[in-house]
Amino acid sequence: MDLENEVMELIANAGYARSLVFQAIRCAREQQDFAQAKEFMHQAQQALSSAHHVQTRLIEMDEGSGKIPVHLVMVHAQDHLMNAIMLMELGQEIIALHQKIAA
Rank of each mutant, 00 (worst) to 15 (best):
R57L: 04
S65W: 00
H52F: 03
Q45I: 02
V73G: 00
H52L: 03
G91H: 10
A24D: 10
I59M: 11
S19E: 12
R26M: 10
V54T: 08
E9K: 01
R18L: 14
L72C: 05
I68F: 05
Q36P: 01
A102H: 12
Q23K: 12
G64K: 01
P69Q: 10
A12L: 15
I25Q: 07
A17R: 04
H53C: 00
V21K: 01
Q99M: 12
V7N: 03
S49E: 14
L10N: 05
R18S: 12
M41F: 07
G91T: 14
N83R: 08
M8Y: 15
A12V: 15
A84E: 09
Q36L: 13
D33H: 08
K38W: 02
R26L: 11
E89K: 11
H80T: 02
V75P: 01
A37N: 05
A37R: 03
V21C: 06
I85Y: 12
A84F: 06
Q32W: 03
M86A: 15
Q31E: 14
H53Y: 06
T56I: 06
V21G: 06
E6W: 02
Q99L: 05
N83W: 05
S19F: 11
M82L: 05
V75L: 15
H76Q: 06
M74S: 03
H76L: 03
K67I: 04
N83Q: 12
M88C: 13
H98F: 15
S19M: 13
M8V: 14
Q55D: 02
H42M: 09
Y16N: 15
Q36H: 07
Q55E: 08
T56A: 11
M1L: 11
E30H: 09
Q45P: 00
E30L: 08
I95T: 10
E6V: 03
A47I: 05
Q92A: 06
N83S: 13
L97N: 07
I68Y: 04
A24E: 09
Y16W: 11
A47H: 15
Q55F: 05
A47C: 13
L48N: 06
Y16A: 15
E4R: 11
H52S: 07
H98D: 09
G64V: 02
I94P: 03
A47M: 13
I101F: 09
D62E: 08
Q92K: 10
L58S: 01
A103V: 12
M86S: 15
V70A: 14
A44K: 02
Q78H: 13
E63N: 03
Q31K: 11
Y16F: 12
I94N: 05
I59V: 12
G66L: 04
F34W: 01
A77V: 12
G15Y: 09
Q36N: 08
Q43E: 13
Q99I: 03
G66R: 03
V73D: 02
E63Q: 13
E39G: 00
M41L: 14
L58T: 05
A51F: 01
I25M: 08
L87I: 12
I101Y: 10
E9T: 02
E93Q: 10
Q92W: 07
H53G: 01
L81K: 02
I59F: 06
A102D: 10
A44P: 06
Q55K: 03
I101M: 12
R57Q: 04
G66C: 04
H42W: 05
